[in-house]
């Protein structure tokens, strides 16, 4: 089946098998390997990307479902050499160790911060309940997102 999709600002026209997962399409058809697959059944959250403004599990979607959509992956977060504030905060606060779950958490957090004004630590923790990290114990992740949200909150 033919798919026309905008990914990170570029338009791709690809012929794909109907059963091809969006995660495999991004990683292996387009070569955007920053999106990771940890469980392929929608629990770990490593494969999270943003489709038409909403964070989704790319292992639970088919590539054909994003026909006509706009997809953002972790590769789109930094603006050239300028890191996204969340990326900088993760770096500053040791919010990643092996880094495998990180792209999915970053994409979910980007979506979350766009939707939430000055979230509490509890709200951040609740948002993260859909993401598994085996290395950090989460404290530094919560702290990083909280820091960015407060910085952005001061703009309002």
């Amino acid at each position: 089946m033919d798919v026309s999709v905008t990914v990170n600002g570029y338009v791709y026209e690809e012929a794909v098998a109907p059963r091809l997962l969006l995660s495999d399409f991004l990683r292996h058809t387009l070569g955007l390997t920053g999106t990771h697959v940890g469980c392929e059944h929608g629990v770990c959250g490593a494969c999270t990307v943003i489709v038409d403004g909403t964070s989704v599990r790319s292992c639970l979607m088919l590539a054909v479902q994003v026909d006509g959509s706009n997809v953002r992956t972790v590769e789109d977060l930094a603006d050239g050499a300028d890191l996204h504030p969340l990326q900088s905060a993760f770096h500053d606060n040791h919010a990643l160790q092996c880094g495998f779950c990180t792209p999915g958490i970053l994409m979910a957090a980007v979506d979350f911060l766009e939707e939430s004004d000055s979230p509490t630590r509890e709200e951040i923790t609740e948002m993260l309940s859909g993401h598994l990290c085996r290395c950090t114990g989460y404290a530094s992740i919560v702290e990083s997102i909280h820091l960015v949200s407060r910085r952005e909150g001061t703009k309002e």
Partner: peptide, 21 residues
């Protein structure tokens, strides 16, 4: 000291085995 590993990993540019073609 902030980690040297991080810049690639937070940008999705780290190379894990399944990323190699």
């Amino acid at each position: 000291v902030r980690r040297k590993e991080d810049p690639s990993l937070i940008q999705g540019k780290g190379t894990y085995v399944d990323d190699i073609k």
